[in-house]
Design a protein around this nucleic acid. Structure first.
Length: 876
DNA sequence: GTAATCACG
DNA sequence: ACGTACGTGATTACT
């Protein structure tokens, strides 16, 4: 049998090390994970390298130890453990348990003492011992059979202390480490030592005298010096300090070496904890991922013929898709359950069944689904109009907590403690290994999803009601999903020819600029590579470096703009960048997304993604089509109506976020300004610059005021404003102060919303959407400041999102009621884009502003601007 | 996969 | 003193 090897870990010390060595990390639920992650990687590495036969992690027990009896101030004056670390200790314990590693703590004793005691016992029994800690004190335990591993700066970087290494490093024996600490003390443990004696002096003294005791026996013979005085004066302290630093190797532990046998982790439990903590890279690296989570049996039947008897009044329905691109991918299967057994129906059978089609289209038959919009869009491609969605797990989870990420049923289910369903990755694999399994496996997986939905519907709805968010979910998000589905399915026509011509013109221009840049640089290089560009600009041409990134020089537009006067090449690079962006993203990228069959693009609006409640748009993103610069704006000429004689109609909220702010803070000046229909940036300029007449406000003053207003919405900071306006921080701070003095209501609101967030842990919008801010009470300045700005911004941005969502629902109803052909196509945060027959424009001009302005009544009026034209470009 | 950049509100 | 504007998505380069 191989020689036994005992690994002893200092749990507290390693957790602290990991916490301070790694940047602040959090998982999807906002729990900090830097200590747990560092601890885990360290553990993984050491397990692999050492292959121990026995293991234990020791922890410090409560606050007081036997050392406090002889010295009350022991470890006094220590900083309180940061809450971001405290919250991680339970997970570290969970991790250790999942590894099947013994952990131990003992009242009145520190982890050191437990480790010392066990190390001694093991050595007596001829077992090799390795001790791992971040605390050098432990090196006193080193012997020929006991090696002490101390982590260096990182956590996986380790220095191995054997007696020989200690001799080499300090010229001392391990036992003399204690004497060294007795003389020099330890600030972190509040051990006094002898003032004025540091590491160097302590080592010198010990080389000469051997120990603290021997030193004091010989002290009379020492020649008079300042140091001798200090030593004499602090003799008592030296002895006490040595005593405190001595690790006790006779602790009354009630575990034996036999209890410490280590035979490897419980892989399922470990994966479970890793998933909870969001250690995706570790899960992927490990070969445990294939380990199938223990699943309860389910009752399911694969049906050949859908009968009316199978289709109940209320059922969980799952439509399994190949991937997230539901406008183009395949459907893999369908499962239904009413809480008894589950029915799995293959795609072929499902599409042949008129009974199923009728049931799916029957609004009175209630369906519990996940991602109703995806199911709606997929079924629509097969001529089935999904109706009667009564529960959508994706949306409900998002409302409970928008930080919950992922659209996999397994991921969402787990948030609510339901685990009887596998992650897609487990069933299909990922990347190149992705494949659809045999039907039995697929049927089981899809059925489990339906069963999960059935179980979760009451659980999640209860949670929504507890948080008073059921209305937001049921009356806003759920009906909105269907409207968004209709919009996506409808799509918007894009003229390929227009794009093609623009692309050709762009390519020619780009080629010319490219040559000019190469000439001015004196060589050819990849202009698209910031790294290569940096070398040309800052090394070769010697332009001044104004800003750096983590990896090198910054070549971002704001930096280049400041360098324009330095060299002609800069302007050309800016032009190149602008045109290259248009070409790659908006000409080539957009063209790829045009469906060949209808000449349209069908974006996907992500409804359960943003932290604030906004939508986002992907494949293609239609919410960032250029508008600010004329060259880019022309891209909009390619967006056209789908029918002859139709036009595009666009309506946007004017200053919706500032109006929301006015409503929430009730600042009299701000409210009044909106009620009187004033230009809000001019009004702000008057207050910030102290002028009484709007005519005195210059264009520049208004521009500055506009930036201040943005700053207010974003959670103002003087630095941010100074960067934006390219002014000094001091000036920016002055503007902010002027603003807050002029609008005391805003100041009060900002203060109270941050205070609320600190108390409740979350902020809310007008319709009670929540965003949790776990870092609002962090002791880390950056994290806390970020959370504070978020607390100020989210209610504003989120409430604006609430308003336009409500407007979309009301608008959809209104279009139906009026019997119009006009269709809503796009939403871009504060604007709605429709297409309509030209003869309906007059009606739209009347009803769209009316519906949008009355979506939610605020303390200030909402204002909507609108226009129409043959293309999106012309609807300005 | 991450970083840098840039498009939008 | 700390280092920053809020919220997104796509492309490219590079490891």
């Amino acid at each position: 049998m191989a020689k036994e090897k005992l690994l002893l870990l200092d749990g507290n010390s390693l957790a602290y090390r990991a916490f301070f060595a790694l940047p602040p990390l959090t998982n999807d639920s906002g729990i900090h994970t830097n200590a747990t992650y560092g601890f885990t990687t360290m553990l993984q590495k050491i397990l692999e390298e050492e292959q121990p036969t026995q293991m234990l992690v020791a922890f410090d027990a409560g606050k007081t130890t036997f050392r406090h009896e002889s010295y009350g101030e022991y470890k006094g004056g220590r900083q309180k453990t940061p809450p971001e670390l405290s919250e991680q200790f339970p997970y570290i314990r969970k991790l250790i348990d999942a590894y099947n590693i013994k952990r131990y703590e003992l009242d009145l004793y520190e982890a050191d003492d437990i480790i010392g005691t066990l190390a001694k016992q093991a050595e007596t029994n001829g077992i090799d011992v390795i001790i791992v800690s971040g605390d050098k004190d432990l090196t006193q335990l080193a012997t020929d059979n006991v090696t002490v591993y101390i982590t260096r700066k990182g956590i996986t970087d380790i220095e191995k202390y054997t007696p020989a290494h200690i001799e080499e490093k300090y010229g001392l024996t391990p036992a003399q480490i204690i004497d060294m600490k007795g003389l020099m003390g330890d600030a972190s443990d509040n051990i006094p030592g002898v003032p004025g004696v540091g590491e160097k002096t302590a080592i010198k003294l010990l080389k000469e005298y051997g120990s603290v005791e021997a030193l004091y026996e010989a002290i009379d013979g020492m020649k008079a010096s300042k140091m001798k005085e200090k030593l004499v004066e602090n003799e008592e302290s030296a002895h006490l300090s040595k005593k405190l630093a001595t690790i006790f190797t006779e602790a009354p532990i009630d575990i034996t070496l036999d209890d410490l046998a280590y035979a490897g982790p419980n892989e399922d439990a470990l994966l479970e904890v890793w998933r909870e903590l969001g250690f995706k890279s570790l899960i992927e690296k490990s070969d445990m991922q294939s380990a199938v989570q223990e699943q309860e049996e389910i009752q399911l039947s694969i049906v050949d013929h859908v009968t009316a008897a199978m289709l109940k009044e209320t059922m969980a329905l799952h439509v399994e898709l190949e991937n997230e691109h539901y406008h183009s991918c395949d459907m893999l299967g369908i499962a239904l359950t009413d809480g008894t057994d589950a029915k799995y129906i293959s795609v072929d059978k499902a599409l042949q069944s008129d009974e199923l089609k009728a049931w799916l289209e029957d609004a009175s038959k209630k369906k519990y689904v996940v991602d109703s919009k995806a199911a709606q869009a997929m079924l629509a491609r097969h001529g089935i109009k999904l109706e009667g969605v009564a529960f959508d797990l994706l949306l409900a989870s998002y409302i409970v907590n928008p930080a919950i990420s992922g659209d996999d049923v397994a991921t969402l289910a787990k948030e609510f403690g339901y685990t009887n369903v596998q992650a897609n990755e487990v069933i299909y694999g990922k990347g190149a290994k992705w494949s659809v399994p045999e039907e039995a496996v697929l049927a089981d997986h899809v059925s489990r999803k339906a069963i999960a939905l059935w179980h979760l519907q009451p659980v999640v709805e209860k949670k929504l009601k507890e948080n008073e968010q059921y209305d937001l979910y049921n009356d806003l998000e759920l009906p909105l999903a269907k409207i968004l589905g209709d919009m996506e399915i409808e799509g918007i026509s894009v003229n390929v020819e227009t794009l093609k011509q623009m692309g050709q013109a762009l390519l020619e221009k780009i080629a010319v600029i490219e040559q000019t840049i190469y000439e001015q640089a004196g060589e050819e290089f990849n202009i698209n590579s910031p790294k290569q560009l940096g070398v040309i600009l800052f090394d070769k041409l010697g332009l001044p470096v104004l800003k750096k990134t983590k990896t090198g020089y910054s070549t971002a537009a704001d930096v280049l703009e400041k360098l324009q006067s330095e060299h002609d090449i800069v302007k050309h690079i800016l032009d190149y960048r602008q045109l290259a962006k248009l070409q790659s993203t908006y000409i080539e990228g957009l063209t790829k997304e045009i469906h060949a069959d209808d000449g349209k693009v069908h974006t996907r609006f992500q409804q359960a993604l943003t932290a604030t409640g906004r939508l986002s748009s992907t494949d293609p993103n239609l919410q960032n089509i250029p508008i600010r610069l004329e060259e880019g704006r022309k891209i909009r000429q390619a967006f056209v109506p789908s029918k002859e004689g139709w036009v595009l109609f666009a309506a946007d909220y004017s200053q919706i976020e500032l109006r929301v702010l006015a409503h929430m803070c009730q600042d009299p000046t701000l409210v009044e300004a909106f009620k009187e229909g004033m230009d809000i940036h001019t009004r702000t300029a008057m207050d910030v610059f102290g002028v009484t007449n709007p005519d005195e406000v210059t264009a520049n003053m208004r521009r500055t005021a506009k930036a201040v207003n943005f700053g207010i919405i974003y959670g103002i900071s003087d630095y941010g404003l100074s960067q934006n306006l390219d002014i000094t921080r001091k000036k920016a701070a002055q503007f902010i102060e002027n603003y807050l003095q002029s609008f005391p209501g805003v100041k009060g609101y900002m203060e109270s919303i941050v205070a609320d967030a600190k108390r409740e842990g979350f902020v809310t919008t007008i319709l009670n959407r929540r965003r949790y801010l776990p870092e609002i009470n962090s002791s880390n300045f950056n994290l806390r400041s970020f959370a504070e700005r978020t607390a100020m911004n989210t209610p504003i941005q989120g409430s604006a999102a609430d308003i336009i969502k409500k407007a979309m629902i009301n608008m959809d109803a209104r279009l139906k009621k009026e019997g119009l052909q006009a269709k809503l196509l796009l939403q871009v945060h504060d604007e709605l884009i429709f297409e309509a027959p030209v003869e309906e424009i007059e009606i739209l001009e009347r009803i769209v502003p009316e519906v949008m302005e009355s979506a939610i009544e605020l303390a200030v009026p909402l204002k909507v601007d609108y226009s129409h034209g043959y293309s999106w470009y012309d609807a300005k």
